[in-house]
Every structure is written in structure tokens, then in C-alpha cells.
Amino acid sequence: MIRYVLIVLVTVALLVLSMPAIDRAATLNSERQVDTTLASIDDAATDLESNEEVTPAGHPDPQRVVDLALPASTLTTEGVDHFELDPHESSGYTHARYVLADGTTRERTIDATIVWNDPDRTDATEIGGSSDQQLVFRLVETDDGDPIVVASYA
């Protein structure tokens, strides 16, 4: 009987001691997944700006589609509370920022200006929560005649 009690106590102690490591691994796993998504966004937007031209009226705009894989909270991943692409139109880059459920915040610079839905506004692209979604990036012309990447949901 004492053996069984000792086995249970050792098992519980090992679980309690391993929880910080499991939490840290979940955070690292989520960071890896979201960083991969950000790299896909960066690749698509910079490729669009570098290798495409704005099309004349009446023709389809050049576009790229990116799958967003924002993890949910599970034992092996932390959920994403907030995901945002904030354009800096005068500088030609976008500031990407996300916050995980445990409060971990990460930032990255994307080498293209990405605006939400309207080429003549500088609204940030905000995606809340954890889910799988698709974003479409189109290269369009502003009223000033400058090319810009516009994001919208697929």
C-alpha cells in the first residue's frame, strides 16, 4: 500500500515540477507558429511590391493570399490575444505586433506598407483571437498614384 502512495506522490511532484517547462514550451511553440505566419506575410507583401505593377482600371489587381495560423490555447500552445499590422506609410514599412494569452509580446518589421481595406487610409490590420483565416494582399494605387499593399479577408 505504501508503494502505491509513494508512486502517486512522486507522480504528482513530477507533474508540478514540469508545469513551468510545459508552459514555456507552449509559449515557444506559439511564438514559432506566429513568427512563421509573419514571415509568410512579409514574403507575400514584399514580393507583391517588388515584383508586380499596379494594373490599369478594369483589370484584376495583383494579389497574394496568406493563410494565418494563429494558435488557440491548448496544453502545447498559448493562444493569440491580439495580432496587428500597423502601417508607417511615410517610411515604407509595417510594424507587426502580437500578444499571446500569457502576456508575451513580440514585434517585427515588415518591409512593405500594408493597410486595411482602403489604399487611401492608414488603418491598421487588426486580427483578434486565435483562428485559421486567410488574408488577401492586393497591390493597388493610392489617389497620389503610389502603389500600396491592401489587406482584406479572403
Score class of each variant (00 low, 15 high):
2 I>W: 04
3 R>K: 10
4 Y>T: 13
6 L>S: 12
7 I>D: 05
7 I>E: 06
9 L>Y: 04
10 V>F: 15
11 T>W: 00
12 V>D: 01
12 V>Q: 04
14 L>Q: 07
15 L>M: 13
17 L>G: 11
18 S>M: 14
18 S>I: 08
19 M>S: 14
21 A>K: 03
21 A>R: 12
22 I>A: 12
24 R>D: 03
25 A>I: 04
26 A>I: 04
26 A>H: 02
29 N>G: 10
32 R>C: 04
33 Q>P: 02
34 V>H: 02
34 V>Y: 05
35 D>T: 01
37 T>A: 11
37 T>N: 08
38 L>R: 04
39 A>C: 00
39 A>Q: 14
40 S>A: 15
41 I>Y: 02
43 D>A: 11
44 A>Q: 01
44 A>W: 02
48 L>P: 06
48 L>W: 08
48 L>T: 08
49 E>D: 09
51 N>W: 03
52 E>C: 06
53 E>K: 15
53 E>D: 12
55 T>V: 07
56 P>C: 04
59 H>P: 00
61 D>I: 06
62 P>L: 10
65 V>S: 09
65 V>Y: 05
66 V>A: 09
67 D>M: 11
67 D>W: 00
67 D>H: 11
67 D>L: 14
69 A>W: 00
70 L>K: 08
72 A>N: 12
72 A>D: 12
72 A>C: 00
72 A>T: 13
73 S>N: 13
73 S>P: 00
75 L>Q: 10
75 L>V: 14
76 T>F: 00
76 T>Q: 11
78 E>R: 05
79 G>P: 05
83 F>N: 04
83 F>T: 05
84 E>N: 09
86 D>V: 13
87 P>Y: 01
87 P>W: 00
89 E>N: 10
89 E>P: 05
90 S>H: 08
91 S>V: 02
92 G>P: 09
94 T>E: 03
95 H>K: 09
95 H>P: 01
97 R>S: 11
98 Y>K: 03
98 Y>S: 01
100 L>D: 03
101 A>P: 01
103 G>C: 11
105 T>S: 14
105 T>K: 15
106 R>F: 01
108 R>N: 08
108 R>P: 05
110 I>R: 00
111 D>H: 15
111 D>V: 02
111 D>Q: 12
111 D>A: 09
116 W>F: 10
117 N>M: 13
118 D>V: 15
118 D>F: 02
118 D>R: 14
119 P>F: 02
120 D>M: 09
122 T>P: 00
124 A>V: 07
128 G>S: 07
128 G>Q: 10
129 G>N: 04
129 G>L: 08
129 G>S: 11
130 S>W: 06
131 S>A: 15
135 L>M: 14
136 V>K: 01
137 F>I: 07
140 V>M: 14
140 V>L: 08
142 T>Y: 13
143 D>P: 08
146 D>F: 13
146 D>P: 07
147 P>I: 12
147 P>T: 13
149 V>K: 03
150 V>W: 04
152 S>C: 06
154 A>Y: 07
